[in-house]
């Protein structure tokens, strides 16, 4: 492993560490708002990964001079990842808003935004439902 290889790949590794931090928050934390924050961190590190792929050493931002006198020696960064990520950011905030709206509704319906408490509630509801159905079934059987 040469030092050139190491420093050439260090940025990817840092983004992966960030990505995994976000993933850890999503998987391990029970609070739904925190999960959304973790998802955002994950998302942002994927964006950075894309942009770093489009970067060119010695390049500049992909904007021509205003008078369109283009100097062929100037190297521009790849505009394609920029476009993809630009739209992804705005879509990302819209989906984040959707997730937050879901959280607000969950809180109104169940009074909590902790995953554990929600799971307990869900089990309770399932138990109640099965109790009711069990009685109904039992009643029919006894009628036979």
């Amino acid at each position: 492993m040469t030092s050139e290889f190491f420093f050439g790949h260090l940025n990817y590794w840092l983004f992966i560490i960030l990505m995994m931090t976000g993933l850890y928050i999503v998987v391990a934390k029970g609070n739904l708002v925190k999960k959304i924050v973790g998802l955002n961190i994950f998302q942002t590190s994927v964006f950075m990964f894309y942009i770093s792929i489009g970067n060119v050493t010695g390049g500049t931002a992909p904007i021509f001079p205003l008078d369109m006198k283009i100097d062929p020696d100037v190297i521009y960064s790849n505009p394609l990842p920029h476009v993809l990520i630009l739209t992804a950011i705005v879509v990302g905030v819209a989906t984040t808003a959707l997730g937050l709206a879901l959280i607000v509704r969950i809180r109104e319906e169940f009074g909590t935004i902790e995953e554990d408490a929600l799971l307990e509630l869900e089990h309770e509801i399932a138990r109640k439902v099965s109790d009711q159905h069990g009685e109904a079934m039992g009643g029919r059987h006894s009628g036979d």
Binding site: I63, L66, T87, I89, V90
Partner: peptide
Amino acid sequence: DFSPGGGFQAGV
């Protein structure tokens, strides 16, 4: 069209 920016940023 001439400098950084566009519909998405302006909208926000």
